[in-house]
């Protein structure tokens, strides 16, 4: 199923956030995605972050730093975002498996350079909140804080774009192989 992208963002200002922090291994005994919902980012080690807070509850986008999603291959990490309606992650870089898992689920793992992530985080600091719209065709991220609008162009491989448009890798592969 095709996803919608964008909305209020939560900022996670740290590199190397791993999949154990996104969804601890003790919840890997669940056999449905929905069951993961209450445990999003439960073990994240980050000052000021509240896994039970309103900011995370309202978030539809995650903005973060380098090597996001490193560690385990568990697709439970993208799934816990998916069932919490977070379909977009914007980071400086990703671990390979997490990035592929996002696109395989028909979701977006957008890469922006450090200067753009800095600007997004500054805007968030100034306003306390930031709203992000994603224009996939134009490959553009538009961020609105307190009136000011910023826009950033991102690169996405044609394959990853095709996965998002198909709704995921199963749909794409089933139609093709």
């Amino acid at each position: 199923m095709k996803k919608t992208f964008g909305g209020p963002a939560i900022v996670l200002d740290r590199s190397d956030i791993n999949t154990d922090e996104i969804i601890p291994a003790k919840y890997l005994t669940e056999v449905t995605k929905e069951a993961l919902k209450p445990y999003c980012l439960e073990d994240l080690k980050l000052e000021g972050f509240d896994a039970n807070g309103e900011v995370l509850k309202k978030a539809r986008v995650v903005v973060t730093r380098e090597n996001f999603g490193c560690g385990s291959s568990r697709e439970h990490a993208p799934w816990v975002f998916e069932v919490n309606d977070i379909h977009t992650v914007i980071a400086e870089s990703y671990a390979r498996i997490f990035r592929q898992n996002m696109f395989n689920c028909g979701m977006l793992a957008i890469e922006l350079p450090k200067s753009d992530i800095d600007a997004l985080m500054l805007e968030k600091d100034a306003n306390g909140a930031i709203d992000i719209q994603v224009q996939l065709q134009e490959q553009k991220v538009v961020a609105k804080g307190n009136g000011q609008e910023m826009s950033f162009v991102f690169e996405i491989s044609p394959f990853d774009k095709a996965l998002v448009e198909a709704g995921g890798w199963v749909e794409y592969a089933d139609a093709r192989y």
Binding site: S73, R74, E75, N104, W169, D174
Partner: peptide, 14 residues
């Protein structure tokens, strides 16, 4: 290579 469950699913099927 390690992969996620969706890659695994397509691997099993295709």
């Amino acid at each position: 290579a390690g992969v996620g469950t969706t890659d695994l699913e397509v691997g099993i099927l295709k």
